[in-house]
Amino acid sequence: MSYRVTLQNIIHKNAPQAALIFDYNEGLKAIVNQFKASKWSRTHTCFYVSNNKVTCNELYVYLRKHKVFVDYSNLKIASEAPAPPVKIIPSVAEQKLIQSFKNFLEGRQYSRSTVATYMNLAAPFINYMKEQPIGGATEDDVRLYIEKSVKEKNYSISSHRQLVSALKLLLTLHKNQQELKDLVRPKKSTYRPVVLNHKEVILLLQRTLNLKHRCLLALLYSCGLRVSEVLALQPSDIDLERMQLHVRNAKGRKDRYVGIASSVLPLLHNYRNSYPTRAYLFEGATGKSYSASSVRAFLKRSCKAAKITKHVTPHTLRHSYATHLVENGTGIAHVQRLLGHSKPETTMLYTHIANADLIAIENPLDIAVNKNRLADKDNKNIGLSEDH
């Protein structure tokens, strides 16, 4: 068999799933991605299918058909649907604590999504403490709760980090944060994001036939925007005279300006003449902002039409924009400002992805072969085998 996939049990979205674990390979990734029931989990960073007998059997037959060896020795097929999660109804006292925590976060001007995330993470801890005052929670209480939650809910590294941050903020309302100085967040996972090459970017845009969709993707890439940023754009944010795009209230409550590519102008003019909008540059059917789920859906169709087998998300276009800037010689400080990063360390990731200089480095094996050929000028066919 050319490839190998191991199936493992995981819980995702409160349901048993079968994770597909394999060493990274573009060919195998394309095979897995084309299976009709496979989905990608950002939480677990793997492909998965529903853990039931029918789906797992179809997956096994499909993979074997593509000459993939399947190791299912550790997989246990779920015999029945999982019990629905127990809904916790907070007491009056707990509701007051949750509301005060919300007021505290909003007072610090955290974004709505961050407030919602931290509240959802803090509420179970408040229930866990029950009648014991939050201010009386010791570092051991918090650590034991985190260990229990991470194990039971199978948190990813990023969710684990968010949980620690949420609890630290909750406890600052009731005690000195210095007492929790030893409660540290796990280190971020080091990963290399997927990046499209220049040819793939152009092909992706060419294969996106819908004018609105093509214009949205073009701005995502050419301006290095987050999907939330492009969906929040208003017509007044476009300054054609200065060839700039005003990104308002982005991550970290920061505004920034990015340049508009001249090659996007005809597409942008055509789109605005065809789709006159009011509140948002990209509006849905009801006049509200276009949804991120819709963007992901048509992006997936465009990738399929362009025959791009990489796992591409809207953020992939932002990664590609930054990587191409670095490869073209743009300084890290400028890339940091264009992306709206708070720390240069975040932007430094792209120096490790950019490979223009690495590609130019001659492989030492080629150097050795060429030196050998120069040493034996009578034999021009010196290679890696003795017979030629």
Rank of each mutant, 00 (worst) to 15 (best):
V49W: 07
A122H: 05
S111F: 07
L97T: 05
R318M: 05
N14I: 07
K102L: 09
D239R: 02
A123G: 04
K102W: 03
N210W: 06
E58N: 14
S385W: 06
Y128S: 01
S222Y: 01
L204Y: 06
A122L: 09
F35A: 05
R301Y: 11
I134V: 12
V258I: 02
W40Y: 14
L358Q: 14
K187N: 12
E26L: 12
P90F: 05
L358H: 11
E241C: 03
A123N: 08
N372S: 14
C223V: 03
H66Q: 12
K148E: 11
Y221T: 04
I157P: 05
A15P: 02
N103A: 01
R185Q: 15
Q244E: 00
A368Y: 08
L59I: 05
M119Y: 00
V227R: 07
Q132H: 07
N197L: 03
A232V: 03
A18S: 12
H315K: 11
E147D: 13
A218G: 04
E152T: 10
L183W: 08
S50F: 09
T351G: 12
L209V: 13
K199H: 11
R318T: 00
T114W: 00
L219W: 02
A306T: 06
N127C: 11
D237Y: 00
A261K: 05
R64K: 15
L339P: 02
K307N: 15
S41A: 03
N197T: 10
A305T: 06
H319V: 11
K288A: 10
R318N: 02
A375R: 15
T43V: 13
T117Y: 02
V54D: 14
K39L: 14
A81T: 10
L245N: 03
K130P: 08
N372L: 14
I157S: 09
I367Q: 15
V326Q: 02
E241H: 02
I88Y: 13
E386S: 15
P85N: 10
N270Y: 06
H269N: 13
Y3Q: 13
R42T: 12
S50M: 08
L358V: 08
K65W: 07
T346Q: 10
T208D: 01
S73Y: 10
H66E: 12
A368H: 11
D182E: 13
H315Y: 05
I126D: 04
T55N: 11
C303F: 01
L20V: 05
I367C: 09
N270D: 12
G136S: 12
S2L: 10
V142F: 06
M119N: 04
I10Y: 15
E152G: 02
V61H: 14
N270I: 03
K310T: 07
H213F: 06
I10E: 10
L75H: 08
V230S: 07
G329A: 09
A78G: 04
P364Y: 03
I31R: 01
L211D: 08
H160N: 12
A375G: 15
R214Y: 02
D366M: 13
N372Q: 15
A356I: 13
A375E: 13
L121I: 06
S342W: 04
